[in-house]
Design a protein around this nucleic acid. Sequence first.
DNA 1: ATTGAGACCTGTCGGC
DNA 2: TGCCGACAGGTCTCAA
Length: 274
Amino acid sequence: MPELPEVEAVRRRLAPVMEGARFERIVLRRQNLRRPFPRNFVRRLRSRTVLALRRRAKYLVAELSSGELLLMHLGMSGSFNVDGADQQTDPPAEAQPHDHVVFHMSSGATITFNDPRRFGLMDLVPRGRIDRTLDTMGPEPLDAGFDGALLASACVGKRVALKVALLDQRVVAGLGNIYVSEALHRAGLSPRRRAGTIATSSGRPRPHAHRLAAAIKQVLQEAIAREATPSYRGSRFRVYDREGEPCRTSGCPGTVRRITQAGRSTFYCPICQR
DNA sequence: ATTGAGACCTGTCGGC
DNA sequence: TGCCGACAGGTCTCAA
C-alpha cells in the first residue's frame, strides 16, 4: 500500500513507540529482503536509541544515537505491526508468515516488519553522508518550496510521458502509481503528454505546472487526512482502478480509461485531461 | 543522457 | 474444484 501518504501514516504510528526508545532485542528471520541486510545489522542496532523517526519520500529514516541512520522501505507489500506498547502483560503475538524483522523496543513495544513480496529494504548508513538513493531524490512535494516552478524545472526538455516522469523519484519524491494518476486527473492533464510540455523551453513554468504542483499537494494531503480517519468509507479514488466507470469531474461525460505506460497501469479521463 | 524492458518475489483474482 | 495467466500501490540494473 505504500506511497507517500501511507508511509507517512506508518511513521506517525511508529514514532510514539520508537522515538526516545532503545532497541533491546532484534530478531532477523532471514538474511535479505530485496537486498541483504547490512553487515552486523543486529549488532549496530542493539542498545541504540532512536532520536527521531522521519520520512523522506517513501523511506522511513530513524536517526540513531550511534550516528547512523536506519533506512526502511516498504516496497510493494511491506507493513509494520505494533504490539504491546500499553499492555505488556499480553502474551506475545504469534509470528505470521512473512514476518522478517522484529524490534523489541525499550518502550515495551514489539514492532514487526512483514513483507510477503520482499521488495522492501532496510539499510544502515552514516548520517551526513546519505546513500545514493536518498541523495539523488527530488523535492518533497509537501514542502513549502515545492511549486510549479520547481516541478517545471525538473521536467524541462523531458520527452517521456508526464505520468512516467512523475513516477521518477528524482523529479518528485514519494509519488507512486496511484497518486500520479489522481494528481493528473485533478490537474486536468493527460498522462500521455510529454513531461517537457509543462515548461517553456527555457524552463519557466507554464500554467500547467502550477496546476499540477497544486494538485499533487492536494491529493497527498487529502490521502494523509484519510489515513488519520480509520472510519472513512467509500471509493477513495477519482480515476485509479476505475476503468470503464464515469469520470468524476463535475459535468464531464467521460469514461475512465486504462492504458499501460512504462509497464504500469495508468487511469485517466480522455475528455477532461488534456 | 534518456528510456524501455526485464528482474526481483508472493499473493490474489478471473477465466476456463 | 483446480489450474493458469495476468496483475498488484516499487525500485534497480542493463542494454539500446
